[in-house]
Design a protein around this nucleic acid. Sequence first.
DNA 1: GATTCAATTATTGTCAACAATTGTTGTCGA
DNA 2: TCGACAACAATTGTTGACAATAATTGAATC
Lengths: 229, 229
Amino acid sequence: MDAEAGKRHATDQEIYEKIWNAIAERQIGPGTRLKEEQLADIFTASRARIRQVLQNLARDGLITLVPNRGAFVSKPSIEEARDVFFARRTIEERLVERLCATIGSAGIERLRQHVDNERKAHQDGDVASAIRLSGAFHMLIAELAQSQILASLLRDLVSRTSLIMAMYQQKDVLNCGPDEHAAIVESITARDARKALAVMHHHLAHIENQLDLESERVVSRDLEDILSL
Amino acid sequence: MDAEAGKRHATDQEIYEKIWNAIAERQIGPGTRLKEEQLADIFTASRARIRQVLQNLARDGLITLVPNRGAFVSKPSIEEARDVFFARRTIEERLVERLCATIGSAGIERLRQHVDNERKAHQDGDVASAIRLSGAFHMLIAELAQSQILASLLRDLVSRTSLIMAMYQQKDVLNCGPDEHAAIVESITARDARKALAVMHHHLAHIENQLDLESERVVSRDLEDILSL
DNA sequence: GATTCAATTATTGTCAACAATTGTTGTCGA
DNA sequence: TCGACAACAATTGTTGACAATAATTGAATC
């Protein structure tokens, strides 16, 4: 009994999440300008709080703050893109390695369930869900590996990856299909750390190799439509 | 011709750095309360900007923001401490591995020079410098490895490590002596990735094993003395 | 017609005052 | 003497207004 009342004031965290999601799910394209007042109107919050949130988003590399100009959704360069994947391999290979040693049956079940959901979204052609779940799979691995820190670091990297994909991915290639995720789960289940590490490496390399340096589409729809959900 | 004039207004970045350093170099102890107005006075800045800086520090885990209560220097639990070291091993092992493949003679020279400086501070009994340089060594490795992202992630982890040491390190054991750092440089110079990784692993494990779960000294001097340098 | 420069407008950066919250102190009663 | 309660003080949270800065428009000149 709090979620009604027309429109309650959103907390900083909620505003952050909304914008974060909108970017990570590629609803707001790279390069889009984010005006403070505009956001303040949308969330019925003061500019000061929006400002705080933007600062945080900038710290995660999702937006870029230009002094006296404002906030723009980041346009990662191809070098930054490769760096993101390097960092992801570093972290995620270690995570699956650890998972093989520590995961319990409940964890395995959660992974399987998740891949099933991914497969379903994929079959239904639900692209938005597919993208979201694909990122969530990697976050689930981090969560199960019980490293709070690496999980939070990876969270940022995954969202940046979405941004990179929005810019550089060839349009006909879908995200990562659920099959590679299934392979990862399989080797974790078998507790084969060597293989799990290799499969994860392959998976991330695969995504990276799909990058296309030419295309650079900009989406940029009206923010109001997206964020006021 | 700008550093005089009584006291120029410090930029946000500078304020952040000053506090960051004060914490990382263990001049401000864990648990110390950071009042906004107090800091505003010290830096002759408005509370709004201090607030912004505190938010950023909180995001890096250096301070903890309690709603309606204020900012406190974080007191990492022993579990968080172990997590930090796990994350550091993950990142730094990968960094030295890469360094073995990519470093040039100029980079090697910088590493050697740095270790020399460390050794000097160590011999002179200059504890403050020793602590600072010890952290800087790890940051130098990150910088030379040319991964912007891992470098910035490691930066946070190093500062958290300082905090952890301030809380849990047995008092007579010094930081990490320069010898282990020298060993790391040596194996990098030899481009022996296997060994470099092992030495780095050992080095971090060594530090972690020195942690003492009992002691929990709180320093907490007067902030004014520290930050107004 | 194109270019430079000035005036305008829109947007961000900064600040100081006000509101809300929390911790504390002092008082009253058992 | 101890505990509960109420007024107080100290600190954070929020807001709105104002100043500084950068983009834009329009006019004048070549």
